[in-house]
């Protein structure tokens, strides 16, 4: 891969790790779910950069789409904020 793609994927990986850290620290579970969707979407782009388009499509459709929807439905049925 070209050096430009490598730097792009470095930026994407940093974005992914930041998103994961946001999931850890936030108290609002809705924010956590949306941030985990961001992590999954960035992961799909990384799969595409690693020449795995099949996996990228699956990850984008499932990880960023369906899983997020399921989590949001569960939050609606339970509670939105994390208590200590």
């Amino acid at each position: 891969m070209a050096p430009f793609v490598l730097y792009l994927s470095l930026a994407l990986a940093i974005l992914m790790i930041v998103g994961a850290i946001v999931v850890v620290v936030t108290k609002d579970l809705l924010v956590a779910v949306i941030a985990s969707a961001v992590v999954d979407l960035v992961l799909a782009i990384l799969f595409y950069i690693l020449q795995a388009p099949d996996v990228a499509i699956t990850q984008a459709a499932i990880g960023a789409g369906l899983t997020t929807a399921i989590f949001v439905v569960v939050l609606r049925k339970t509670e939105r904020f994390e208590d200590d």
């Binding site: 891969m1 579970l29 956590a32 992590v39 992961l43 990384l46 020449q51 795995a52 990850q59």
Partner: peptide, 29 residues
């Protein structure tokens, strides 16, 4: 719910590792 999100993160990490093993410099899909 956070524990469930953590489980999906573990799974995503393993998936990314497996895909990066298969990658070879300069090759296409």
């Amino acid at each position: 719910v956070k524990i469930a999100i953590g489980l999906t993160f573990i799974e995503s990490g393993v998936n990314l590792f497996l895909i990066s093993i298969g990658y070879v410099w300069g090759k296409t899909a």
